[in-house]
Amino acid sequence: MFNYIVRRLLQMVLILFAISAITFFLFWATPANPALLICGKDCNTERIAEVNASYGFDDPLIVQYGRYMSGLVNPGGRELGSEGSQEHCSWPCLDRSLQNGLQVTDSIADAIGPTFWLATGAAVLWLVSGVLLGLLAALRKGKWLDKLSVGLALFGVSFPTLVLGYLLVFVFIVKGGLLPYPDQANSSPSAGLVPFFQFYILPWVTLALVNAALYTRLTRANMIDTMNEDFIRTARAKGLGERQVVFKHGLRAALTPIVTIFGLDLGALLGGAVITERIFSIQGLGKLSIDSVLGNDLPVVMGVVLVAAFFVVFANIVVDVLYAFIDPRVRLS
């Protein structure tokens, strides 16, 4: 298992390498021209040439890519810029933004906090509500509670996030005044728990709804299948109480596939929840990535893509390892 984990981590590094290369070369394959962006309003050919020279946009792409990667490969980081704007960028160096000149590592570090709280909070919400509802529905199969939760799930899946988000804002903030307008200062728990929850509750609900619905359906289906298994019958035949049968024997088996999907979903979300962040103007990775793409800001695009890819790939590894802990059958092979 240890060897396996090491192998997977090495694999991850390779994947990230490949992704960085693909992003980099794809970016240059588009008609985008970052030099134009940098040189600003009073731009002329001379100034553009200057910019190209100082940022190295003249160099062959492969050289530029090598320069970018040196900040990630070299444990000492790299020196950025020229003329008066020289600065050191320590490992892992993701270069500087073309728009505001800030180091990308710092921008990401700032944006990761809100995204982290948003994603994990929503994940907890949809996991708990999805599993609970699904479980209840499965145990009351065919009864009204089941029908209700199936209906809710259908509703949740088909409700567009964008509409839901703006609807919540309208009802709870604009019209109802039940919650304050979002204030970026409250985006971390250090601002106090009440403002923190007030800040995140609507984004959580918005982000969690679709997944909660999907997880309800999944849990219900898995649980119904599992409760038909022979080993459940054995558990009852031992004289176990229904609660133990359901939780110890049934849920354990039914949740296994859900753990996998949960890990992957959460991993994907940590790269940013674009729509939700936008609706609630949360300064997270999603917003950062939108801004950078719209602004042709290559270093930031690269940074955001790499971070998002890292979470996805890493979540994959965590899930696989976790699976081995849960299901002894995959342990040996």
């Binding site: 298992m1 240890f2 984990i5 390892v321 081995a324 802990f325 342990r331 040996l332």
Partner: peptide, 11 residues
């Protein structure tokens, strides 16, 4: 031969 191992991470 099926290996018999102990431990999950460090087998």
């Amino acid at each position: 031969h099926f290996p018999v191992t102990q431990g999950i991470v460090f087998q």
